[in-house]
Simulated scan of single mutants.
Amino acid sequence: MNPSATGWIDKLNTLLDKSGVFPVHAIVLYDKLRDSGFIYGTNIRLAYPLDIDNRLTEEELSKTHLYMALLSAHYTHTGSLVYEEAIHTVISFYAHIEKHNVSFFQKFLNGRKNSTKLEKILGNRIQFDENILTKNFNRILTNVLLYTDVLTYIQYLGGNTDCVTYAAKLEAFIIDTMYRALEIKPGKNEFDIQLVRLFEASARYAGTVGKEVIVPEEEKRIFSTPLEKKYLIDLACLTIWNDKVIDTEEKQFVLDFGRDLQVGRNEVEQSVELVRSFFRIYKDEILLLNFSNPVKHFYDNSTRMVSNLILRNKKRLIQELLQSRELLVLLSKSTVKELTKEEKQKVKVQLLDICKTIPSLAIFLLPGGGILLPLLIKFIPQLLPSAFNDNKIN
């Protein structure tokens, strides 16, 4: 199952059926999504272990989790899960909230079967830098408010004919809460600044928002379901999080916030600890926290991306390499000796020729894609039969 390729939803449905853990109630899945990082705007792993050979990228995990959350919301509302019916309803929901967007209907709702339409819609909903090379340098994720889609979909299922207004109020409330939380922090660091940008960039329904946003008290009371409360509390805790000690005023802020939402103290304190624990455990894997070394980010992200591409095209790549004897000799030589300028150029040209035959490796053909070739060369020896290493040129 590859969420970057057409047909992934149908394959995921099969995997979910085989897993024996799905469907589940939305509030049960929510806890799993929080543990995976989806609720916090990042994705470390799948919410449930599934029989997937590929290591999913951040974008692919986001698509998968959003789809699962929407299915779970449908199951919770109807009491059953028929994939075709759920997919049809989700498409109707997105068509409803985009009813004034002509390009949406032209791009995503023409032709195709429903599962393919939804793949396009979800792909459009997940915000990532479209330039695959640039995003390795500056990957500030803008999906921290993605769960608002699920809460808004629940409103749609419940008959709310103006669910867009609901979503706009929810986003405004979240961002208003974020600003109030940041104002009481004794010292703001780079993480806080990045978090502000993250929230603002994630807003889809509220439009342009800023410090001046004010949510009337009576509108705050509309967020009263257990899922809404859990989500709001978790994002408030995310705002006050830091890797040291949470200040007394900060903790009191979320406790007061929880009381306003009629959430018990124990649940609020648990949410605080869950945020701290998640970011403590996965700190090195969360790009938002590692803003101090952009060059290292570029290398780490590129390495991860190239590794995924190679694993997913391993058989075809081995076949193409074994047919190019000169390239194999040069690659073998490069592991023990510096190649000449002419030899390096030969390697580059022949590798790019191979990449032309494998669509998934087309990234290396893009302008600037050549800077990733050394990573491709680095991984190739691991793919080839042991005879390749036995015959190294010494």
Rank of each mutant, 00 (worst) to 15 (best):
V329E: 09
H74N: 14
K283L: 02
T42G: 13
S115Y: 13
F253L: 05
Y67E: 09
T134W: 05
Q382L: 09
G264P: 01
N54T: 01
L375S: 13
N131Y: 05
C237P: 03
Y299A: 14
N131V: 08
Y48D: 06
E320G: 02
T335R: 11
T64W: 11
S80N: 02
N138F: 14
N308G: 09
I363G: 07
D390H: 10
F379E: 15
V21P: 00
V24E: 10
R304Y: 09
A387G: 12
G210F: 04
F93P: 06
P294R: 00
I132L: 12
G20K: 04
K11P: 02
F253T: 06
S92T: 04
S72N: 03
R304C: 01
E119C: 07
K135A: 08
T142G: 05
L361A: 00
L352V: 04
L288H: 08
P23L: 04
N54M: 13
E119G: 07
Q382N: 13
I97K: 03
D149S: 03
A168D: 02
K341Q: 11
H74Y: 15
G20F: 07
E200H: 05
N301L: 13
V245T: 11
L255P: 02
L383Q: 06
R139H: 08
D10N: 04
W241F: 15
A167F: 10
Q127A: 15
I380N: 09
I377P: 00
I371K: 05
E343T: 08
R125W: 11
W8Q: 02
Q262G: 00
H297E: 08
R280G: 15
L141P: 00
E59R: 15
K296D: 06
I132D: 10
K107D: 11
K356D: 08
K346I: 11
L287Q: 08
P49R: 14
F199W: 04
S307R: 15
S271C: 13
R259E: 06
I286L: 08
Q350C: 06
K283A: 04
V347A: 04
T78L: 01
V254P: 13
G258D: 02
T6V: 06
Q350M: 13
F105N: 09
C237M: 14
I380T: 06
P294S: 00
C355L: 14
E338C: 01
D243Y: 12
N313W: 02
N394M: 12
S92Y: 01
L15C: 09
I358K: 08
N160I: 03
S115W: 03
V306Y: 12
E269P: 00
K185H: 05
L330H: 04
I132S: 02
V336E: 03
N308Y: 07
K107Y: 12
P49G: 03
S19K: 07
N124M: 08
F278D: 10
H77V: 06
Y147C: 01
L118V: 12
F257I: 07
K211C: 01
N43G: 10
K230T: 15
G264T: 07
N290D: 09
G258Q: 03
L46D: 12
L309A: 01
F173M: 14
Q194P: 00
F223H: 02
L261I: 07
F137T: 11
K229S: 02
L46S: 08
L327W: 15
G79P: 12
T161D: 14
S36H: 09
V306S: 03
G159V: 03
D247Y: 09
R221C: 01
F223G: 10
N391A: 11
I27M: 10
R221I: 08
